[in-house]
Design a protein around this nucleic acid. Sequence first.
RNA 1: UCCCCCUUAGCUCAGUUGGUUAGAGCGGCUGACUGUUAAUCAGUAGGUCCUUGGUUCGAGCCCAAGAGGGGGAGCCA
Length: 480
Amino acid sequence: MSKKSRIKIRTLLQKAPVGEQVIVKGWVRTFRNNQFVALNDGSTINNLQVVVDYENTDEKILRKITTGACISAEGTVVESPGRGQSVEIKASTVEILGEADPEKYPLQPKRHSLEFLREIAHLRVRTNTFSAVYRIRHAMIFAVHKFFQEKGFLNIHTPIITGSDAEGAGEMFRVTTLDPVNPPLTESGEVDYKEDFFEKETNLTVSGQLEVETACLALSDVYTFGPTFRAENSNTSRHLAEFWMIEPEVAFCDLDELMGLAEEFVKYLVAYALENCADDLAFLEKRLAEEEKHKPQQERSPMGLVERLNFVRENEFVRLTYTEAIEILRRSKPNQKKKFQYLIEGWGADLQSEHERFLVEKHFKKPVILFNYPKDIKAFYMRQNEDGKTVAAMDVLFPGIGEIIGGSQREERFDNLQARVKELEIPEKDLWWYLELRKFGTAPPSGFGLGFERMIQFICGMGNIRDVIPFPRTPGNAEF
RNA sequence: UCCCCCUUAGCUCAGUUGGUUAGAGCGGCUGACUGUUAAUCAGUAGGUCCUUGGUUCGAGCCCAAGAGGGGGAGCCA
């Protein structure tokens, strides 16, 4: 007879093969009454109840079935006489695979603060909240690729180490193999990067956009989905120094079509989560409701998590030009009554997050896409509009998160692009290849960047971005 | 980087006007119970009150500096 393999708890609970002999393995969540093990193996948020025959099991083994311990159990699947579950395992043998000293194991069968769990990131995945978040995160990675696959986009791996510092998306992390104490110097006393590994200055990427555009102007519809690094000293619940970004780039596409793609994409992800992660979402909804109980009425969200996701899926996003937004904000109550910290006086100012929140959360009460921003507050590669004042840029704003997507139609006219590069004093030597794209067979492409963790935050209802990535990297924190 | 708040048992937190020996719930341990659902019941151990300096007869509590954490702002995704 061949060796019997284990069955995953998710499969077991789905099939409920009553009468069958099975092996299950996982980690003990609780051990009640000297016989009821709540076992979890991460395949689902639901625990399996393993009933130990305490009268015929070695006392030494019983004592080692503690919260956090890893066990293997063999037994028969039976209908449960108890109320909390439909089936359970009547175990004939229990083997301890890994003990967890109860005096030292930090996770208890009770609610812990997210701040405490952040300090034990290597163990927090063993909690319901984090296992749910990571399962949903996985499902969203899959859904991203599925969406683009169905639309005929090609996935392009853009470089992590980059020699161009031109995108201007933020401060960069330097990549070097030079001795930090005694670096080789040039005759004029500066660090001689000719001696460095790449024989030039290199950094971790802040965006794959410029590189993915090269593929776009040959393969038409492409996207990159990879890690992104920003050395900004940002200390907020919405920023990471290392995060994952999805950047589609579409040839022969204008801003209007791009906004359509962004909305369709975000709704697809939300729908995928609703249809495939129901158990985990139900748990996270309960968690969020519990958390909000401790908040004042005013700060509580009017909808539950699932209701909110359905709302986003079913309602059209508002599309609003920057100019229209300024008008609405200028005439708004908080502006008239001088409640805004930054008052809207006229056209041209960048919108602060209080303004974005007002539009999304108070005025329209749904996701908003703002477009046609003043060119002076946007990047060099964005396409200039006919008015001479604005560029074809757009941001998708979400409740509670703020900017979740930023994108634009790209400037495909060589002269315009070069003029803009000169105007902003961007070193042309770093951008020669990007400029050449506009010399040889240029085409109007459009693209955007979606912050993956911000999307996960929204779908999971998590308030802090550090709780939707396994090992968050933030200023002063690179533990694990 | 700026503003505000927090730091007391393993965890979550209370601690009065500055006053003798610093508390609770959960968790741990010991035992009871044995179809429980974050089991229950009884008992019990567990403290650098973040650190340093100061004020005071006396500091968990007041003052200063520092460290760590959180919320908000800016930067952005």
